[in-house]
Amino acid sequence: MGEAFDAGFFVRWLEAAALAVDREAGLLTELDSAIGDADHGANLQRGFAAVAELLAKEPPATPGAVLVAAGRQLISTVGGASGPLYGTLLRRTGKALGEDEHVGRERLAEAFAVGVAAVSQLGGAQVGDKTMLDALVPAVEALRVSFGAARTAAEEGALATVPLQARKGRASYLGERSIGHQDPGATSSALLFAELAGTARAEGPA
């Protein structure tokens, strides 16, 4: 458990996330057209492309600063509810990491827990409301064990939104008709944790 990740790791994760969002934008929009307003893919594409561009131009020096800068950029550029929500997740997680130049996985899990709590507070949602929290909460909990466990927990959490009835956001207006569809926000959250695990695996344990 001696892994320690620097600012470059977090830049590579977010660059990989931007590619993944680009690749899966069609799926995210398709899920969002079933119960939302069909903009989740395009919104995240725009936001994460702006994040990748910013980080390439001015790479911050610490993991915390990378996440804070990325979060601000998402709030500025996404244009949908996922912007302030993911923006808050990254910004609060980054702030919780402080000025450290290297952070270990367990420290990251603690910081993400702060970020996820801020997302829950901002949106007023809980686990079971059919939102991104259904993937984020179990993922962050599992990150205490390993990156792979976090990835699996996020994927399972996203799949588990299918039978749920939406209680937040536009999908909640659909009532029972929201049942049977996978939540787009939980799906993009699973994508982010899959890329986090992929980036960690590619770089191997320290």
Binding site: I75, A81, P84, L85, R170
Partner: peptide
């Protein structure tokens, strides 16, 4: 509604 509320809240928190 929705993202309008959340965006302003996030900007104020910033």
């Amino acid at each position: 509604l929705g993202s309008a509320v959340l965006t302003v809240k996030a900007l104020l928190a910033e």
